[in-house]
């Protein structure tokens, strides 16, 4: 039996990254696995599903872009204010299956959040995983999120950041993620790719991975849908016969591809 009862937690700190993206650090013992999500709510406003951006059992970090009802209300909160959270929901990344494999992680924009918690997990269990390649894509230098952490990870992993709008960049590289991946090719033997971002971006990256020799059954997509409950009863996040909340939000691409294709096909036909 599951309830809708959320728990109250205190915001420890708020860090501003860009004009519309903040990182909320919340003291919280829910310890969500990488790839799962939490239902964050503010009484009187509503609920929204957010991925945790860290893997720790003492706090939860929410990297939030100011786009919707709840997220814009969250931007009025400060350190010391309380916020309600229930969860975690979803299956998350298949951590057991990824053991002993090389990893490619690709994220675009705020899609960096679930990937960050996976990187944290890999850092803590470094022995279990092989080499790690990380590719991030942002619009321009002003839009770069978690830049302090990116610097740290650069020392540990093969990390490349691509900027699509900037014509000149010193620190980072120019171009879409798939172009950058072509420049700095990852090893493809015994490798699994984890993607999170807009669906168009993930598609092009998957094509690029295909060219490099990584088949669809080794690519994992993290999907975004509307969720009201989080455990498969409100029916809003369904893609054909799967619930994104209960069966995902991480899907193996060869499983989800025909379902997405069918829906996109009928979306084009009015």
């Amino acid at each position: 039996m599951i309830g809708y009862m959320p728990k109250k937690f205190k915001i420890k700190s708020v860090k501003k990254y860009t004009n519309d993206v903040n990182l909320f650090k919340v003291k919280c013992n829910l310890s969500p696995k990488p790839g799962t999500f939490l239902e964050v709510s503010i009484p009187g406003v509503g609920e929204c599903p957010l991925a945790s951006c860290s893997y720790d059992n003492k706090y939860v970090e929410l990297l939030t872009r100011n786009v919707g009802k709840v997220t814009s209300a969250m931007f009025n909160l400060d350190a010391g204010d309380s916020i309600q959270i229930r969860g975690p929901y979803g299956k998350g990344f298949p951590l057991e299956k990824l053991k002993g494999k090389n990893l490619i992680m690709v994220a675009g924009g705020t899609g960096i959040a679930p990937i960050t918690s996976m990187i944290n997990y890999v850092e803590k269990n470094r022995k279990n995983y092989g080499k790690v390649w990380i590719y991030f894509g942002f619009r321009n230098e002003r839009c770069i999120l978690l830049n302090d952490r990116i610097e740290k990870w650069k020392e540990k992993f093969h990390l490349h950041v691509g900027l699509t709008q900037d014509k000149e960049t010193h620190k980072y590289e120019k171009g879409f993620i798939n172009e950058i991946m072509e420049k700095h090719k990852p090893k493809t033997k015994n490798t699994v790719a984890l993607l999170c971002g807009p669906e168009g971006m993930m598609e092009t990256v998957t094509e690029e991975l295909h060219k490099l020799g990584i088949t669809n059954n080794k690519v994992y997509w993290s999907l975004e849908r509307r969720m009201e409950c989080g455990f498969g009863s409100c029916g809003r996040c369904q893609i054909q016969d799967v619930y994104v909340c209960k069966d995902g939000p991480i899907f193996r691409y060869d499983i989800i591809k025909p379902k997405l294709n069918n829906e996109n096909w009928s979306n084009k036909k009015e």
Partner: peptide, 21 residues
């Protein structure tokens, strides 16, 4: 607006896809 997410994207945009779903 059944599948509408923040930012204005509706995942089942056309009537065809909604009816078939």
């Amino acid at each position: 607006n059944f599948s509408l997410v923040a930012g204005g994207k509706s995942f089942r945009d056309s009537r065809t896809s909604r009816f078939k779903h």
